[in-house]
């Protein structure tokens, strides 16, 4: 997995609340098990009309936001499916960080597994960053995972919380399975004990 430390980039504003995984990547694209290539269909139904032409006023179709690396989104981003196509599509498009007041649990976890950083901030902070994002390509927002801060283009900084283990993995590009394997002894011991105590399971 790629390491994540600091990015500075254009942020696209998506103020809608409850953006669900079907909106992020409609289900007709869920058949693939490849992690790459889904970026063109990100937000498909909002981004293209039925003939496949771009809808000009959708944010990611605007020239300023075509290279956006950050999304600033409304509350409860990513509710819906547990399949990882939504984070895959976002990552494939080039999104590295998503800022919102809250995320759906499964989606939140899935972001980290795909090298993306979901950032939870209070409403007031998200409002400031949303306004900042609306300024277009001149406004670059900075996300620094090491110091756990997001900084708006005019220098306002907001501190965010992130789980220490998840931060460690993302900073170092570590893969979960490898890390868990180091604890194989504990798992084996647990398994043996459980087989005695709950043989029916």
């Amino acid at each position: 997995m790629e390491k994540f430390s600091k990015i500075s980039g254009v942020a696209a504003p998506l103020p809608l609340v409850n953006i669900d995984t079907d909106m992020i990547i409609p289900k007709q694209f869920l058949k693939t098990i490849k992690r790459s290539g889904l970026g063109v269909n990100l937000f498909d139904e909002m981004r293209y009309d039925r003939q496949g032409n771009e809808i000009a006023d959708f944010v990611l179709n605007k020239p300023a936001y075509r290279q956006a690396q950050i999304l600033v989104a409304g509350d409860n981003f990513g509710c819906g499916s547990s399949r990882e196509h939504a984070p895959w599509a976002l990552a494939d498009f080039g999104i590295k960080a998503i800022i919102s007041t809250s995320f759906a649990d499964i989606f939140y976890n899935n972001c980290f597994k795909n090298g993306m950083l979901p950032i939870v901030l209070p409403q007031e902070a998200v409002d400031v960053l949303m306004k900042d994002a609306e300024k277009g390509s001149n406004a670059r927002i900075e996300v620094d995972l090491e110091s756990q801060t997001v900084t708006s283009s005019d220098g306002q900084s907001f501190k965010f919380e992130v789980d220490a283990f998840k931060k460690h993995c993302l900073l170092n590009g570590l893969d979960d399975i490898g890390l868990t394997m180091e604890k194989a002894k504990s798992i084996d011991a647990f398994e043996a004990k459980a087989a005695m105590e709950r043989p029916w399971a």
């Binding site: 547990s82 990882e84 499964i106 976890n109 899935n110 979960d176 399975i177 868990t180 394997m181 798992i187």
Partner: peptide, 29 residues
């Protein structure tokens, strides 16, 4: 690997819907 795995909680079992990376993690560990 499906979010409605929560259904199984009706039996008093702790049931989580998980994503593809987590499925791989469960298979391996």
């Amino acid at each position: 690997g499906d979010s409605h795995t929560a259904t199984h909680g009706a039996f008093g079992s702790l049931a989580h819907g998980i994503g593809t990376s987590e499925v791989e993690h469960v298979l391996a560990t």
